[in-house]
Amino acid sequence: MEITLRVNGVPRKADVDPRMSLLDLLRERLGLIGAKKGCDHGQCGACTVLIDGRRANSCLALAVAVDDRDITTVEGLADGDELHPLQAAFIEHDAFQCGYCTPGQLCSAEGMLGEPGPSAITEDLLTDPGLTPDEIRERMSGNLCRCGAYVNIVTAIGEVAR
């Protein structure tokens, strides 16, 4: 099936099998290998991209079902040679070891910073709790890091959230 996406601001056409995931389309057809295939079942978050500005697991999205959507991958976060503030903070705070989960962590954090409302741990549903370390941990629970760099990931995201 013929689909058209805007990927990191650039219109891209592709002829895809309905079985193809957005993740496979990005990695295998469009040459964007930032998003990673970890579990391929929506449980690890390594494949996280932004679909119309909202973070999502690209492994669980069929490419045909995101026809006409705006996709942002980790490759689209930086502005030319200028790193996105989250990227700079991840480097500054040593927020990764092997780096495999990092593109998903970055895209997830970028989406999370724009999400309104409370989280599961917010005490008062009607008051903005601010992004405390506990709030960041809860809101980022869809991204696993097997190196266990969580402490520095939370610090890096917290710095950008301020």
Binding site: G45, R55, A56, G111, L125
Partner: peptide, 27 residues
């Protein structure tokens, strides 16, 4: 996140927020 759900149906808002991850709930 809807103001009416948060203010009038907090049990429902809390249940939804307790499920899955931010990525899954977005979709």
């Amino acid at each position: 996140a809807h103001p009416v759900i948060r203010s009038r149906y907090p049990m429902l808002a809390r249940a939804v927020l307790a499920g899955a991850s931010g990525q899954v709930r977005n979709v």
